[in-house]
Each structure stands twice: as structure tokens, then as C-alpha cells.
Design a protein around this nucleic acid. Structure first.
Lengths: 212, 212
DNA sequence: ACTTTTTCTTGACAGATGTCCAAGAAACCC
DNA sequence: GGGTTTCTTGGACATCTGTCAAGAAAAAGT
């Protein structure tokens, strides 16, 4: 194990730690790909290894057990996705434009990253059963809520009006819309993305700021 | 097999068919209990049988395979739950009362039937991966949307004002709120039910009918 | 009472799964 | 280049899985 850092020659140790962490991330990426393809229930360690350049034994060298690997996947997933809309927030110069960009981005990620999103919903459901997942999942969910809140409050700012919603309610409605759209999209319904875009825009315009 | 009904003596055949269907329902109930306890990923046929009064072999006498059993569970679950709020709709005599009753009922079923609800979300996530589940899940989801729509439109009627939301948006926000509350509730957060009740009420009052 | 049909149990099967381990390969250090 | 540490492999393990089939038990039919 190279996880211990306290050593005389810190350069070497640090390098080893980095390499160790790098391998963990690499394997977690393979796991993420496999999980998003098959779902939690159907993903085995051997399948994950086959989607990587290593053999199945190596997984227990870098992770204590399957749960630790999956937790690592969740954390890695989080780091990438909670800033999804931030560049839209920063570059929008009017409320209407922010609204359009946000709705378009929702529809785009629905179609382009559908498999990753379905894994997220699958994992969140697993958290309802497996207590060891719950803390991380709740934290990630909270980060997503904040991400939505940044969009919503920036929209209100550009509209020079206050937000009329709780962060929790705002997240709930967009999350609910997205989830439904995902189910429809994967079911082959061609309108799913367009409907999501339309619904997203109308919710932002009509409800987020409350009655006028 | 007694599934064929076309026989001279229909009384007998009918009785056998009924008994056959009855056993299927009984076994599906055991399966439902097991699934809601362990989740889809961790539920085996032997575990289901152990939660019933039969041995594991009988499951393949009444169901072709595991998928058929689970599909039957989903359909049975649907029959019970899509009318959950109908008596509230019928007995409410004012908009405010309907709002309160609905919010209270949401909070009540969250705490009392949490395990069944988590199974629903688990199964809906499975539908994102397993195409053979999708049709039933989409249909059940649609039924739930209609159930919410009945509440919302009755609330508007009692308020003598029109609904300002799509059925899809209305369902999304209540479903999103419920899902989040469920995760929090199972995570031991004491406020989960109260927050759900509060959020549900405020969404109904402030957003469903749009700006005044 | 005897036969037929329906229902249920038991054990077996082939394959998959998480985990561990011994041994080889590779990288690294002096 | 020899010795040490780190990394990787492939196989073994015990257990669990869905499925099936043969026959016991129970019920129905005559």
C-alpha cells in the first residue's frame, strides 16, 4: 500500500500516492461506463474489469470491496456534473437568454448523456435501500439543488425580481421534469427532449418568480 | 395449466382460473414485500419464496420467469395506489381543505408506506435499463400523473380559477418533492415529512393556479 | 375406490458473483 | 545488476443465482 504519505523522501511517496489515486480514478471511470450501461443491479466486478485494460483481480488492490469502488464512482461523477450549467449562468446577459440556454442545455444533456443520468437515478434509488450510500447521495443531491438554485437566482437577478420558490421546490420541479423526460427518451419517444425544453422554459418564466 | 378457459364446463374452469390468479396475486404480494425490503438488485426468488408459505420451485409454476413475476408485482402495485387521493378529492368541500388534506396525506404515506415508495422509485429506475419493464412503468407513471391531475384540477375547481400548469409539470413537482422527502426520511431526518407537507401545500397554493 | 389432474417440494444443474491469494512481472532504488 | 517494493495476473474458493425436472402430495373427477 502506498497510501501513507509520512516518509522521509516525500517526493517519491507523493508521486506514488498520485499514481495510486490516478489508477483509482481510471478504474472508477471504467466502472462508471459499465454501470451506466448495465445499471447497478447487473454490474459485476468482472464486467467492470473487462471494460478496462486490467484483469478483475486488480480491483481489490485499489479498492477494499465493491461498495468502496462504487462510492468512489459517485464522488467522481459528482465532481464533473455539478457545474454543468455554470458557464451558462456566467455568460447569459439577459433573463430571456438565460432561460433559453438553460432549457436548451437540459434538452442537450438529456440526449447526449442519457446513460449517465439514468445511472444517477439508479444510484439515488439504491440509496433508499443501502444506508452506506445515503450520505454521499444526499450530499450529491444537495449539490445539484445548489446548481439549480444558482440558475434560478441568477435568472431572478437578471429579471430584477425576487425568486418566489424554495431551493427545494425549484430543484424538485426541474428534477422531476428531467426524470420523466429521461424515461420517455429512453423509451424512444421522439418528443421527449423537445417537451423537456418547453417545460423547462415555461416553468422558469411562469412559476419561479411567482405571480406578477 | 388452467389458464385456458374454453371448456364445456365453464364453472369449473372458471373456478380453477380464479384460484390460479389468486395464487399469483398471493405470491406477488410476497414478492412485493420482499422487493420493498431489499430492493430490486438484492431480491432473489428464493428470498421471495421464504417470505411466503411456499417453496422456491412454485414460483416457476405460476410465473414463466422472474421478469414475469416482477411485472405482475408492478401491475398489482398500480391497482392499489393510483386511487390513493381520490377519497380526499371527493370529500373536500373547499380549496383550503383539499390543500390541507392532500398535503397531510402526502406526509402520511411518506412515513407509513416508505418501503413501498422506495420500491416504486427503484423499479422506475430499472425501467431506464430494462426495456421489458418500460411499457408498464410508463403506463403506471402516467396513471400517477392523472391521479395528481385530479387533485390539482379539483383544487382549481374549488377555487373557481383555472389551472396554470401542464399535467406533466404538476406531476413533476410533486413527484420531485416526494422523492427528495423519501430519501431524507429514510436517512433519518426528522423534518422530512413536515417539510414535504409544507412544500406540498405551498406549491398548491402559490403555483398551481399561477399568478393572481 | 380408483384414476386423472392439479399443485407443490425437493434436489440438481450450470453459470455467475465477491473475495482472496500465490506467484509472476514490472518498476524502482542503491 | 541485484535486491526490494509495487503492481498485476489468473485461478481457486464458497456462495448464490435462475431455471428446470422428477416425483410426492393433494384435489378433483368419475
Amino acid at each position: 500500500m502506498t497510501e501513507v504519505v509520512e516518509r522521509a523522501d516525500e517526493r517519491i511517496s507523493r508521486r506514488q500516492v498520485d499514481k495510486f489515486a490516478q489508477r483509482r480514478d481510471l478504474l472508477a471511470s471504467s466502472a462508471l461506463r459499465t454501470l451506466s450501461e448495465l445499471g447497478y443491479a447487473r454490474t459485476s466486478l468482472r464486467e467492470i474489469a473487462q471494460n478496462s485494460e486490467f484483469s478483475h483481480g486488480v480491483l481489490h488492490y485499489y479498492f477494499r470491496d465493491k461498495n468502496e469502488l462504487i462510492l468512489h464512482c459517485v464522488r467522481q461523477y459528482k465532481a464533473e456534473c455539478v457545474t454543468r450549467y455554470d458557464h451558462i449562468i456566467e455568460s447569459a446577459s439577459s433573463a430571456a437568454q438565460l432561460c433559453d440556454s438553460f432549457a436548451a442545455a437540459m434538452a442537450a444533456t438529456l440526449t447526449e448523456e442519457a446513460h449517465l443520468h439514468r445511472l444517477w437515478y439508479d444510484m439515488r434509488s439504491q440509496g433508499l435501500f443501502e444506508p452506506s450510500f445515503r450520505a454521499d447521495l444526499l450530499e450529491l443531491d444537495h449539490s445539484l439543488e445548489q446548481m439549480i438554485w444558482r440558475v434560478v437566482s441568477r435568472y431572478a437577478e437578471l429579471s430584477t425580481r425576487p425568486v418566489a420558490m424554495d431551493p427545494a421546490v425549484a430543484y424538485a420541479v426541474f428534477d422531476g421534469l428531467f426524470q420523466k423526460a429521461l424515461l420517455r427518451f429512453l423509451g424512444g419517444e421522439a418528443d421527449a427532449a423537445a417537451d423537456l425544453q418547453r417545460h423547462t422554459g415555461s416553468v422558469l418564466v411562469e412559476f419561479v418568480l411567482g405571480g406578477r
